[in-house]
Each structure stands twice: as structure tokens, then as C-alpha cells.
Nucleic acid binder design. Structure first.
Lengths: 134, 134
DNA sequence: ACTCTTGACAAGAATAATTCTAATTTGATA
DNA sequence: TATCAAATTAGAATTATTCTTGTCAAGAGT
């Protein structure tokens, strides 16, 4: 948390609240999740602040913006390189830290300069499997 | 195209136009792209029809809904298993058909039943690289 | 040929997520 | 502590998508 002073971020109470909520969070929350949670302690919190803060954090590489969920963006404070496993029913997302060799052949590369990759695994989580076979 | 008769789809002119546009299309178009293109030949085409048709095609596994682009869904008529490479600048998407070994360890699996996976490669395409280094 | 049923279409309203605007306030620094 | 750029706020605006409602068309059975 201390580290944010160094990257030219003004440390406002709102930002500290958002950072505090994100720190160590494994839920991959959406902007709304964050807004709801932080609003409890901070009733004047605005949605704009949540989005603004997430955007500046993203620019600085402090959070990842996930596009796994078709309906909304979700955010990941875990900035170590990793992949994701998502439950197709409840949209729960968990981190996968295994290493995979994802070299891409010259012909596949199509002239692109490759700068990264990300694997999405799809599945059904234990809770949803139990809930009902369907 | 013939094959759609078999899957219980009523073949209306609108659907044929959409199917015709999608067939062999490598652009991974958005609903709007499809709407615009098909509207030219079909001025009364409605957005609802585009979305409805895409949804029924998706249900039947005839198109994939891609969540790679944070701003909108994009659709892929290539239903062979494959991965994608996206240009971070212009959002161009190209198909990658290489095979990767993406076994997931029991501990990573976290009790999920795995049903699929998808790799997103990120990069800068040739055109964008030339356009300006930035 | 007539009627029924069903599925598809169109237009626009409604919704949901996100971004923008403009006015105000605040944190960091001199 | 005065200053000022940056941050916050509320709400409007925008964008993508879904929903609603009325209409229409094709095929099934009479």
C-alpha cells in the first residue's frame, strides 16, 4: 500500500479504501462489487471514482482488467503473471499460476509483435455441480 | 449453408443474409459490423434480428461469442477449436490453430470440472507497428 | 381455401455498464 | 497556510445489448 506514494498517486481516503478492498482480494470483483463494498464505509463514494481509480491503477500496472465475463469487466489485483479458470454457471474466477509453454510459430504470428498471452479455462465449479446437474 | 436446414432453423432471407455474411468471414465482426453490412442489402433489417440470429446460432454451436474485446462482443463463425491473437491497438483478431498442451493439475483445478480452454495472445499488428512506434 | 399455431421480424423502449461533464473540494508542496 | 493541479462528486450521456409488443408468414390440419 505504501508503494502507491511512489508512483505519483495522490493518496486520498477514497483511493485508500479502494486499495484496501483490492489488496489480497481473490474475487476478481467488478466495478459494481467494489463500489458496493467501499460505499459501506464511504457513503459518498461515487461510481466515477471507482472507475477513475481502476483506470489509473490499470495504467500503472497495479490491477488487471479481465474480459472473461461477457457482461462486465472484472478486476484482478494479482499482478503476477497468471491464468484464469472460470465457472460457466456462477462466473466465479480463480487464479492459475502454472506455467505453460505458449510459443507461437512465425507463421501463426502473422507479422505481429507478441507482447503477452492469457489462458482462460472454462469449467463448472464444485458448488454449481452439486446445485443441480443441469 | 445447406446444413442449417438440418438443425431446425427456419431459413428466412434475413438469416440467409447473416449466414452469408458470416460464412468464411475472418474479421470476427461485432453485432454492429454485421448489422451494417447486412443492412446494405436488407434495409429493413433490425438489430434485434441480428442479436436473435446470433444467439440461436450460438446455442447451436454454429458461431462462437468472443469476449476478447472489452467494449463489445465479437463473433467467430470458425467453429473448429482454435485460439486468438489480438492487436492491442486496432483490435484486429486473427485465428491461431496451433495445438498447445494445456493440462491442468488437480490442485489448480480446485474441484472444477474442466470443459474447455482458450488462449488469447496479445500483440501489435504490422500495420499498427508501422503507423507510429507509440 | 380457411383457420390455427408457431416462429420470426421490426421498431423502439428499457436496461446495464461505462464514460463524460462541469462544478466543487482536497492533498501535496512551496 | 496559500496555491494549484489533481481528485471527487452527482448526474447526464453514451454504448452495447436485451426486452416488449404488435405484426406477419409458412405450414398443418380441417
Amino acid at each position: 500500500m505504501e508503494k502507491y506514494k511512489d508512483i505519483g498517486l495522490k493518496l486520498t481516503p477514497q483511493r485508500l479504501a479502494i486499495l484496501g478492498y483490492l489488496e489480497g482480494n481473490k474475487e476478481h470483483p467488478s466495478a459494481e462489487d467494489i463500489y458496493k463494498a467501499v460505499s459501506k464505509k464511504f457513503p459518498t463514494m461515487s461510481f466515477a471514482t471507482v472507475y477513475n481509480t481502476l483506470e489509473t491503477l490499470r495504467e500503472r500496472g497495479e490491477v488487471l482488467e479481465l474480459t472473461i465475463d461477457p457482461n462486465k469487466k472484472r478486476f484482478d489485483p494479482n499482478t503476477k503473471f497468471h491464468h484464469h479458470l472460470i465457472c460457466l454457471k456462477c462466473k466465479k474466477i480463480i487464479d492459475i499460476h502454472s506455467d505453460y509453454n505458449l510459443d507461437i510459430s512465425k507463421s501463426d504470428r502473422a507479422g505481429f509483435e507478441i507482447v503477452g498471452n492469457h489462458i482462460e479455462f472454462y469449467g463448472i465449479c464444485q458448488k454449481c455441480k452439486k446445485a443441480h446437474g443441469s
